[in-house]
Simulated assay, not measured.
Amino acid sequence: MATVILVRHGRTTANASGVLAGRTPGVLLDDVGHEQVARTGERLGVVPLAGIVTSPLERCRETSRAIAMHQAGKPRTVSDKAITECDYGDWQGRSLKDLAKEDLWSVVQNHPSAAAFPGGESMAMMQSRAVAAIRKHDATYEAEHGPGAVWAAVSHGDIIKAILADALGMHLDLFQRINVDPASVSIIRYTSARPYVVASNTHAGDLSWLRATPAEDDAPVGGGAGHAADVDADS
Rank of each mutant, 00 (worst) to 15 (best):
A72S: 14
A72F: 00
G73P: 05
P75R: 11
P75Q: 12
T77A: 04
V78N: 13
V78M: 09
S79Y: 11
S79R: 12
I83V: 04
C86K: 03
D87V: 03
Y88P: 05
D90V: 01
D90T: 06
W91H: 06
Q92S: 14
G93N: 03
G93K: 02
R94N: 08
K97R: 08
D98V: 00
A100Y: 12
A100S: 15
K101L: 07
D103A: 15
D103W: 14
W105D: 02
W105K: 02
V107K: 01
Q109N: 13
Q109C: 09
H111D: 11
S113N: 04
S113E: 05
A114Y: 02
A115E: 10
A115V: 02
A115I: 00
A116S: 15
A116F: 05
F117P: 12
F117W: 10
P118T: 02
G120R: 09
E121H: 03
E121D: 01
E121V: 02
S122K: 09
M123D: 10
A124V: 08
Q127D: 04
A130I: 03
A130Y: 13
V131H: 11
V131F: 06
I134A: 01
D138K: 02
D138V: 00
A139P: 02
A139T: 01
T140L: 00
Y141Q: 05
E142C: 01
E142L: 01
E144V: 05
H145I: 00
H145M: 03
G148E: 04
A149S: 08
A152L: 06
A152I: 00
A152K: 12
A153M: 05
A153S: 12
V154E: 07
V154Q: 06
H156Y: 10
H156A: 07
H156P: 14
G157C: 04
G157R: 10
D158R: 15
D158E: 14
D158W: 10
I159M: 03
K161V: 04
I163A: 04
A165H: 08
D166K: 04
A167D: 12
L168H: 08
L168N: 08
G169V: 00
M170D: 06
M170R: 03
H171V: 06
H171S: 14
L172S: 09
L172N: 13
L174K: 15
F175G: 05
R177D: 11
I178Y: 03
I178L: 14
I178T: 09
N179Q: 14
N179T: 15
N179C: 11
D181I: 05
D181K: 12
D181A: 15
A183G: 06
A183S: 13
S184R: 15
S186Q: 13
I187L: 12
I187Q: 11
I188F: 07
R189G: 13
Y190W: 13
Y190G: 09
T191C: 10
S192P: 10
A193L: 04
A193Q: 13
A193T: 06
R194N: 12
R194F: 06
P195C: 00
V197T: 01
V198D: 04
V198I: 07
S200W: 14
N201T: 03
A204T: 11
A204C: 06
A204G: 01
G205V: 05
S208F: 09
W209Y: 13
